[in-house]
Design a protein around this nucleic acid. Structure first.
Lengths: 195, 195
DNA sequence: TGTACATCAGTGAACGCGCGTTCACTGATGTAC
DNA sequence: TGTACATCAGTGAACGCGCGTTCACTGATGTAC
């Protein structure tokens, strides 16, 4: 084989990307080494040239999922009008698109339920991700003139996480849509950001 | 062996109770037939005299978990002062006790994350449980004089579910406590139920 | 310039393990005579 | 009243399967001579 110098790093990145998607789509318990490798165009035996264990992959994929979502959140922060950026973020989070594509979505609604059972490395990555997101959302709220922005950020994040998790869980699509809409309306109203 | 007439029904109830606890504690994917039977004081082979399959057990245990929580909710409804009942329910849901004992707690924060991957029977039981709980919470809010009780019920339930799921997931206990407290304060304030 | 060798990302068979499920069997007790 | 039999909840060995992990091997290419 003997590939060029960056080949191995590129493969690793590809595997990690597949794992970050599978992690949110199938859950941490459902993430399979052989499956992730197959989707990366490789056989399962090569996995251990890149990662020491499945647990290490889970933790790193979780961190990767937070990192890619961080990029998405930056779009809201980049809006010259903080209020408009905040509205955009809330609407995107509680959208049908986010509900219907967990693999590319926020790790919180997809994974918080099984996180208590994951090893410490993954839990630490999760804790840091939540803390960072809460802080950034609080800063955006402060910039948008929301009162008590820290409490508001925690409250709004919790509601959005719960609403998306419930919306994904409900078998009836109309009821699922209603859950998203109710929380969107309630959050924007309570932040004084109109409907 | 040859036990008395009600013996089999009692055994079934015991297995179901263990399953309802394990389901919320270990997740649906983590619920093992042999483990549930062992905790019920039996060997795994006897399982199929009571249930046609593991999937059937999961669905029935989920319905059972909703039923036992329904009893708990009835305490809030029974309060002569609906506002006091509502406050009690919110505080209990967002308590450390509820966070620390998922096996006896609400199925929503424990299971919504993996519900999209469960078979239809379980999803139906979940959907019915959520609809019933939302309706009852809405009725309690209406009785307590909360404005737009339906939207408020959906919004509050979503926030409580998200907050408990996040509180359980966070590895830092102080941060976890803060998540519960923030949502408790935010919810009671927005319902006009004081701090 | 040509040749022999070293490298190492990736292959694929094999492993031990725990899972859900099946099934022949057990044995205490109710019932028939 | 005593005896033979039927019942059936529960036992425990066995199955096929997919999993994470290990490891001897491959083979294209860079490097040394």
């Amino acid at each position: 084989m003997r590939y060029d110098a960056e080949h191995k790093a590129r493969t690793r990145t590809r595997v990690l990307g597949e794992a970050a998607r599978a992690l949110r789509q199938e859950g941490a318990a459902g993430l399979g080494v052989a499956d992730v490798m197959r989707r990366s165009g490789l056989t399962h035996g090569g996995f251990y040239a890149h990662f020491p264990s499945r647990d290490a992959l889970v933790a790193e994929a979780l961190a990767g999922a937070f990192a890619s979502r961080s990029d998405a959140f930056a779009a809201a922060e980049a809006d010259p009008d903080p209020r408009a950026g905040l509205v955009r973020f809330v609407k995107a989070y509680l959208s049908r698109g986010h509900r219907d594509d967990p693999g590319a979505g926020c790790p919180l609604p997809a994974l918080s339920g099984e996180l208590p059972r994951l090893p410490e490395e993954a839990r630490r990555a999760f804790g840091e991700g939540v803390a960072r997101l809460t802080a950034r959302l609080g800063a955006l709220m402060a910039a948008a003139g929301v009162a008590a922005p820290e409490t508001a950020a925690g409250s709004v994040l919790a509601e959005m996480v719960g609403a998306v998790a419930l919306a994904r869980a409900l078998p009836d699509r109309a009821e699922s849509d209603r859950v998203l809409k109710r929380s969107r309306d309630a959050i924007l109203a309570r932040l004084g950001l109109g409907a």
